[in-house]
């Protein structure tokens, strides 16, 4: 399967982030607008006739966005947090009586002077709030059947709930899988793990180690340490990375639901390679047919497979059996 061009933007429109839900994808532009494609049936994006990318009519200037299974969450330039779509397990954070919204509805405000970052996977959301000095807070909402947010176990957390607070440690990001999450601080240390973490992952082996980068598929944790990527969790479909592969020339990594993406510098260009569960063509083809645009099922279980070469470093993102590459050539 050959990579297809999905969207071409004028040079002045820069892509800040691509976030993927179950069947919808949202692009955040640096000017605060959102482009969306895919399923809007539950209000996760605007319902619009036809296929393709469309600007979302939000009336907001967006600073951050994240998509989950059937919902989208966002922070605007006034530090307000919004949600839309369908969230029967509390994914909208709007309360037990509001599990569907067809436009962005405000969940909460972030205090002035604080910086918010959103993360989401499957049926969970987290909001990281960083101050101007050390310390941070993490709020969570959505499914809590695996205690992925907090203890004790409960079916749903319907409002943003403080799940982590520390006045000294500044969390940098939350890496989220289907039923678990990993909190990583600005020094690249694993600070906390929650939920049903892969049984072969032992957090004590990683605590105290710095300069780690942590990524999650739905059912696995991947830690970039030095020139290796260490994988834990489900590997029935090749999701666990090749232990012998050295990441010396790797400049970026992205994760989809059950596949991974790496960007590697090779001489004067960059190569994008995928591995893992590639049943829908999301890891490209192993047959090297440069004309075929329909998935040939050559790599349902894919070894690391080159899918694109770019002149400039691309951005890479993964969704549910989808791979998104932002080229800047």
């Amino acid at each position: 399967m050959v990579v297809q061009e999905s969207l071409e933007l004028d040079g002045d429109k820069k892509i800040e982030k691509v976030s993927c839900g179950g069947n919808h994808t949202v692009i955040l532009l640096q000017d605060g607008r959102l482009l969306s494609s895919g399923d809007g049936e539950m209000g996760q994006v605007d319902r619009a006739p036809g296929l393709g990318w469309k600007y979302m009519e939000t009336g907001l200037l967006i600073n951050d966005v994240a998509c989950g299974w059937e919902f989208t969450i966002a922070i605007d330039n006034n530090n307000a947090v919004f949600a839309r779509g369908y969230g029967p397990k509390g994914e909208l954070g709007l309360g037990e009586s509001r599990v569907q919204a067809t436009t962005f509805e405000k969940i909460m405000d972030i205090d002035e002077g604080f910086h918010g970052k959103l993360f989401s996977s499957f049926q969970n959301c987290t909001l990281l709030v960083q101050g101007s000095k050390n310390g941070s807070k993490v709020y969570g909402w959505g499914s809590n059947l695996k205690c992925q947010l907090l203890e004790p176990k409960c079916k749903s957390v319907f409002h943003p709930t403080l799940i982590y607070e520390n006045n000294d440690i500044t969390i940098d990001y939350v890496a989220m899988g289907k039923d678990f999450m990993v909190l990583v601080d600005i020094e690249g240390q694993v600070v906390d793990v929650r939920g049903s973490i892969p049984t072969d992952f032992h957090v004590n082996e990683w605590k105290g180690r710095k300069n780690l980068k942590v990524y999650c598929m739905w059912s696995s944790i991947h830690i970039w340490c030095g020139n290796k990527l260490y994988s834990y969790g489900f590997g029935h479909f090749g999701q666990l990375f090749d232990k012998d592969f050295k990441l010396d020339n790797v400049v970026d990594i992205g994760m989809g639901s059950e596949h991974g993406i790496i960007v590697m510098k090779c001489a004067s260009s960059y190569k994008v390679l995928c591995w893992g569960w590639g049943e829908h063509g999301n890891c490209g083809s192993l047959t090297n047919d440069k004309h075929k645009i329909v998935n040939d099922r050559s790599n349902t279980t894919s070894p690391l497979n080159e899918i694109l070469t770019c002149k400039n470093v691309p951005l890479v993102y993964g969704g549910c059996a989808t791979t998104w590459i932002v080229t800047r050539d």
Binding site: G22, N23, W69, P88, F122, Q123, L145, K155, W218, G256, S257, E258, W277, E279, H280, G319, C320, A321, T322
Partner: peptide, 20 residues
Amino acid sequence: IEDMTFLPETQMFTYPCPCG
């Protein structure tokens, strides 16, 4: 079973697949 969604009208249980 508690993680699955039950649809009474079709008497079906569903659960999200990583393919969407």
